[in-house]
């Protein structure tokens, strides 16, 4: 893997790294907003992949960019709803700690 010739693989590995970071954040942060931030990381990693695939024509046309746009739209919407859910959580449990919201545990 040439270091100075930037290709698809570089972006994909970077995205994988960011994705792993997102997963780590999601699984370690007890703050609901923190989990939301982890999700954003994951989504961005995915978006990097899409745009890289588009750039290097792994997919035809500009499908990659369009997918990325939809991901951004959905991410924004998700953030809005998620924040609202976080506020409800806070209202009901008087805390933002997601570990407290385990009423459905086995």
């Amino acid at each position: 893997m040439p270091l100075l010739e930037i290709g698809l693989m570089h972006y994909l590995i970077l995205a994988a790294a960011v994705f792993s970071c997102g997963v780590f954040v999601m699984s370690t942060k007890r703050n609901a907003i923190g989990i939301l931030i982890g999700i954003e990381l994951v989504l961005n990693a995915v978006n990097i992949n899409f745009v890289a695939f588009d750039r290097y024509q792994v997919v035809g046309g500009c499908d990659g960019q369009i997918s990325a746009v939809f991901v951004i739209v959905i991410a924004a919407a998700e953030a809005a709803v998620a924040v609202a859910i976080c506020m409800n959580l806070y209202k009901n449990l008087n805390t933002i700690d997601v570990d407290r919201g385990d009423s459905l545990h086995g």
Partner: peptide, 11 residues
């Protein structure tokens, strides 16, 4: 394993 915690499920 059913801890009820979201982050565990993610893991």
């Amino acid at each position: 394993p059913q801890t009820g915690r979201i982050r565990n499920y993610v893991l």
